[in-house]
């Protein structure tokens, strides 16, 4: 078992879909992520928490290929459990992915952002919502299905002549989009520009847009930021339905503890680019290191906590 499987406070190690090992990201002199290792369990919701500037978004950007990590391995095991030797063999080879049955192993640190989304099927959302604001809600969800639709349009050749096969594919894509819109109650606003939606709806639209790519792992960067309590509750419901209904694994960064504690199966805590704790919500809630570093403590308690960490 690798170091990443270290699970403080939880029982038996869960079967991981994503394994991050010794991830390090350096910007000039700044060490944003320092030798970080953790697992994201298959079919579960894993939360990545930590104080501002702990390096959470940087970890996300490394996983989704927007940054190229300075060192470390980010292995996605799609389709089912993959053997350690297979991953090791792929790491030693110059290859980036190895298909096994319906799934495969993908070394995300070797892949570019759009390849990760298209091939490894890792989708993400952004801290500052990135919808196509000048396109309609429906168009946003159709663009998310670009790759297979573009293929169905015969790379535009069939589409240009209006072939039936393409029209059928497009109808199917609309059907998928409408199903997701139904799920978040926005079907009635399908023809409105995405930029005109209220903030909370934009957040949820961005999530279902990511789901339209058919991901095995969905990474959400502060999905509850700026939501009111009612919207947060709706978000929880949506995320749970994605986990249970689609079998998609979720990794989320979140500050809103009501969301984190309620829906996470597993929490990883970062501070200054290092992992300080890792376990179930109950374990994290009671971990003095987390309390000291994250939830904020009185001065004397900090000293105590520091002593504990040092010791």
């Amino acid at each position: 078992m690798g170091q990443a499987a270290m699970n403080t406070g939880v029982g038996p190690a869960l079967e991981p879909i994503l394994r991050v090992e010794h991830l390090t990201m350096r910007f000039g002199g700044l060490l944003a992520v320092n030798d970080l290792s953790f697992d994201v369990a298959r079919g579960q919701i894993t939360a990545l928490i930590g104080p501002n500037g702990a390096g959470k978004t940087t970890v996300f950007n490394c996983i989704t290929g927007f940054y190229k990590p300075t060192s470390g391995r980010v292995a996605l095991m799609s389709g089912g459990p993959q053997s350690d030797p297979a991953i090791a063999a792929l790491t030693d080879s110059p290859g980036r992915s190895q298909r096994v049955g319906r799934g495969g192993v993908y070394l995300l640190e070797r892949m570019a952002d759009s390849e990760i989304a298209a091939q490894a099927k890792v989708a993400r959302t952004f801290q500052n919502i990135r919808l196509f604001t000048g396109m309609t809600v429906l168009e946003n969800l159709i663009v998310a299905q670009h790759n297979w639709l573009n293929h169905a349009s015969g790379y535009s050749v069939l589409g240009l002549v209006g072939a039936k096969s393409f029209r059928e594919a497009e109808a199917k894509a609309v059907e998928i989009a409408v199903a997701w819109l139904d799920c978040i109650g926005l079907k009635g606003r399908a023809d409105d520009p995405a930029g005109a939606l209220p903030y909370g709806d934009q957040r949820r639209l961005e999530i279902v847009r990511a789901m339209c790519t058919g991901p095995v792992l969905l990474c959400l960067d502060e999905p509850a930021a700026g939501l009111n309590p009612r919207e947060s509750a709706e978000l929880n419901e949506l995320l749970l339905s994605i986990r249970d209904g689609n079998g998609t694994s979720l990794l989320l960064i979140e500050h809103d503890m009501s969301v984190v504690m309620e829906i996470s199966d597993h929490i990883v805590v970062l501070e200054y680019g290092k992992k300080i704790s890792d376990g179930t919500p109950d374990y994290i809630k009671n971990d003095p290191k987390v309390i000291a570093a994250y939830l904020g403590v009185e001065d004397e308690e900090v000293d105590e906590a520091e002593a504990e960490i040092e010791g």
Binding site: A117, A123, R124, V143, H146
Partner: peptide, 19 residues
């Protein structure tokens, strides 16, 4: 649509797997 999406936000396009 991918062209227009690219004009709107190329980072979002990349996150959706568009080359």
């Amino acid at each position: 649509r991918a062209w227009e999406a690219l004009r709107e936000d190329d980072i979002a396009c990349r996150s959706l797997g568009i080359d």
